[in-house]
Amino acid sequence: MAEHPPSWAVFALPVLLAAVALVTAGADALLAAGARAGPARSPREAAARAAAPARGVLRELVRQPRRTRAADVALVRVGAALLPVAAMLAGVVLPLGFRSVSDLPEGVVWYNAMEALAWAAVWLAGWGPNSALSLIGGYRFLAQGLAYEVPHMLAITTAALGAESLRVGGVVDAQSGLWFAVWMPAAFGIHLLSALAMAFWGPFDRPAGRDVAGGAAAELSGVDRILLLGGRWLLLVVAAAMSVPLFLGGGHGPLLPGWAWTVVKTAAVLAFLLWARRRVPALRMERWTEAAWVVLTPLAVVQALVVAVVVLHR
């Protein structure tokens, strides 16, 4: 068990998460601009392309907020703000090296509970503006939740089962030898898929898809837009970072200190997700739900069974 972190860590966490989200979004913007207009001709141009998300935040700050006709403003406000707040609260159990802001005894459940708040957040933000396209976006996320959540819960339970602990620190300790990703590959893969799905990003971006003009975000401008779209990046970062302690051995690794291994592994997971999203089209839930229930859920159960048998004979 690691010692407690300094008390300022609580205030450093939101700043750190926001910074990582901004860097990740910048890398994605760089890739996107390269696809649309060819490779950058100068480092200066590349920097300007990567700065697009930061500029976007500044741009939304100076913009007027919108109220659509007969909108439920309170719901929009709450929904948009809930997403980043939930992502940060989930980040409490993320260890940097071997120390997290708070290594809760039920850390895995806490992460699951906070991440599930996205259901409420996106639906509220989609329902609130009284606009058909944004309503469709909000409901798309609920359908998506029904598809990804069960395999996701089974996957993180499998990691907890491997360590026989719901404490994230305990899961990391159990991986001082073999990483869980090696002997629970299905659970690891499912966790990465659900990281994309809960952040409604990449191949799971239909709740905020361009075909519904931005879906749940279609009617938002100003701070509400920053919160909802920034919140999804935060959620992506937290979920991707969570796969490091759960499956990739956390801070364990040779030579480098624990915190450095966490940083390297998190960056690798995020880079993989950024690459992977460019290789596949978006998954529509009316096709994906079937695959999630008929393939992923039984697969996750079998994976849990294998791990349970191994744990019994350890």
């Binding site: 919108r66 109220r67 009284n130 606009s131 396209l133 003009a213 009617e219």
Partner: peptide, 10 residues
């Protein structure tokens, strides 16, 4: 400062 009041986008 005041919010823009408008209809939904379709």
């Amino acid at each position: 400062r005041e919010p823009l009041r408008t209809g939904p986008f379709l």
